[in-house]
Simulated scan of single mutants.
Amino acid sequence: MATPLWLTGFRRAAPSQHAGPLVAACLFAMMVVPAAVAILLTRWRHPWRDLPAIPSLALPRTRRRVAVQCLWASTVFLAITLVGLIPAALFGLYRPTCLYRPTWPQSTWSLLAMPLSAMISLPLYLGEEIGWQGYM
Rank of each mutant, 00 (worst) to 15 (best):
P96K: 00
L99K: 00
G9T: 08
A19Y: 10
R11S: 09
A118R: 01
M114I: 04
Y100A: 12
P34E: 10
L71W: 05
M31G: 07
A19C: 13
A2G: 02
W109G: 01
L116I: 05
A73I: 01
V66D: 07
F10Q: 00
T8G: 05
F77N: 09
P60Q: 13
W109M: 02
M30G: 08
G20A: 10
G134W: 05
L112Y: 02
A14L: 10
W72R: 13
V37T: 11
P52E: 01
L90W: 13
L40T: 08
S121T: 08
Q69D: 13
A67L: 13
A89D: 08
S16N: 11
T42Y: 03
P34N: 07
P15Y: 07
S74N: 12
G131I: 01
A24S: 12
V32T: 13
L90C: 14
R101Q: 06
I120Q: 02
A113P: 00
R101M: 06
H18V: 15
A89V: 08
L22T: 08
A35F: 10
T75Y: 07
R101S: 04
G131K: 09
A118I: 11
Y125W: 13
P15R: 07
L99T: 03
P96E: 01
P115C: 00
H18C: 14
W109I: 01
I86C: 09
Y125C: 09
A58Q: 10
P15N: 12
A79Y: 14
L57R: 02
A19R: 14
F77W: 04
P102M: 03
T62M: 04
M136Y: 11
R12A: 15
F10V: 00
G134H: 02
S56H: 12
A2I: 13
A113R: 02
T62A: 10
H46K: 06
S121W: 06
R49W: 15
P102C: 02
L71T: 14
A88S: 06
R49L: 12
L51M: 11
R63A: 15
A35Y: 04
I130M: 09
L27C: 06
G92M: 07
I80Q: 09
H18G: 14
M119I: 03
L51T: 09
V68E: 15
I80E: 12
S117G: 12
L59Q: 05
T62C: 10
C98H: 07
W104Y: 04
E129I: 06
P34T: 09
P115S: 00
M119C: 02
R11Q: 08
L93Y: 09
S107W: 03
I86W: 13
S107A: 03
R11N: 07
P21R: 05
L82F: 05
L51Q: 04
T3S: 05
R65H: 15
I80A: 11
V23T: 09
